[in-house]
């Protein structure tokens, strides 16, 4: 980044040569500002990641030497993350929730995209606004709304018919539904953006050549949408995995990783095992992001 200084060809260069030094000074200031900004962006991530390798009981200076204990050690004072049963169970719960949520929201998102791109129906723009709204509603409010809604149904069932539906109480089903409710909006927008670029004549040509509707979908339209489907899936997976606000309101006894981490963090004296988890998450999401970039680039 810092080597950019002398290679920048500004679009807004002031042509007056007398002001040349001033221009260069201003541009150096600007570059310096940009560098500072990226340091600001990187600092907390580096801090969170680096201390996973510090051979100390606290995620703080001084640096006591390099260690991998916070990942792999299996003895108590320095229990590594891969031997910590609660963190591992949180990890696997988060993983499965994220898989289910992203698969569900890709399927529904694809249907939504076709609905809003291809169909015309009464109150379409109203429906579109309703579809987008979960994106701007604060996660906490989304969470409590679903909590109240599900609990009211459960209470009504119990009071009127004596049926106790355990799954409508706070727990994984509600967590999945809560995340699904706003992640579907995101997948819909991603898939619809790709579908908009699709040349409808391709489908018409296939239809003229005698292909059935189902076959066209399978061999023409869905392959075209594939990068968007994968991209939406990756984004959905990550957002679900990282979600905290909505999950916090709906969580029951099986806590996903973010909740487990938060519980530890709220306690004073958290050990660097949290840094290890942070590092692991950063690498994981980095790889997934890379995957989605590669997939999208190949098809374009």
């Amino acid at each position: 980044m810092s080597s950019n200084t002398n290679t920048i060809s500004g679009a807004a260069v002031n042509p007056k040569p007398a002001a040349f030094n001033q221009v260069r000074f201003l541009r150096n200031c600007f570059t310096g500002y940009v560098v500072l900004f990226f340091i600001y962006l990187a600092a907390p991530l580096i801090a969170a990641g680096a201390f996973a390798f510090n051979d100390s009981m606290f995620p703080a200076l001084p640096w006591q030497g390099f260690t991998l204990d916070w990942f792999f050690s299996d003895t108590e004072p320095k229990l590594g993350m891969f031997h910590d049963r609660r963190l591992l169970s949180g990890l696997s719960i988060s993983f499965w929730v994220a898989i289910i949520v992203s698969v569900m929201s890709i399927i529904v998102g694809t249907c939504n995209a076709f609905l809003f791109e291809r169909m015309d129906f009464p109150f379409k723009s109203f429906c579109y606004i309703m579809m987008v709204i979960p994106l701007v509603i604060p996660g906490v409010i989304l969470g409590i709304s679903i909590l109240v809604f599900a609990s009211d149904i459960a209470n009504g069932m119990e009071d009127n018919w004596g049926i106790d539906i355990e799954s409508l109480r706070p727990g994984l089903l509600l967590v999945i539904l809560g995340q699904f409710s706003f992640i579907t909006t995101i997948t819909t927008l991603v898939i619809a953006a790709r579908l908009k670029k699709f040349d409808i004549q391709l489908e018409e040509a296939a239809l003229n050549l005698g292909a059935s509707r189902g076959r066209i979908l399978r061999t023409v339209t869905l392959p075209f949408l594939k990068p968007a489907l994968i991209g939406a899936g990756v984004v959905g997976f990550l957002i679900s995995f990282e979600n905290f606000n909505t999950t916090l309101m709906l969580v029951g006894s099986d806590a996903p990783l973010t909740i487990t981490m938060y519980d530890r963090m709220a306690k004073v004296g958290s050990t660097p095992v949290l840094n290890a988890v942070s590092f692991f998450l950063m690498i994981g999401s980095g790889l997934l992001a890379l995957l989605s970039v590669i997939v999208q680039r190949d098809k374009n």
């Binding site: 973010t258 981490m261 963090m265 840094n275 950063m282």
Partner: peptide
Amino acid sequence: SDLVRSFG
């Protein structure tokens, strides 16, 4: 994750 950023 938000959590990791705040932790940082």
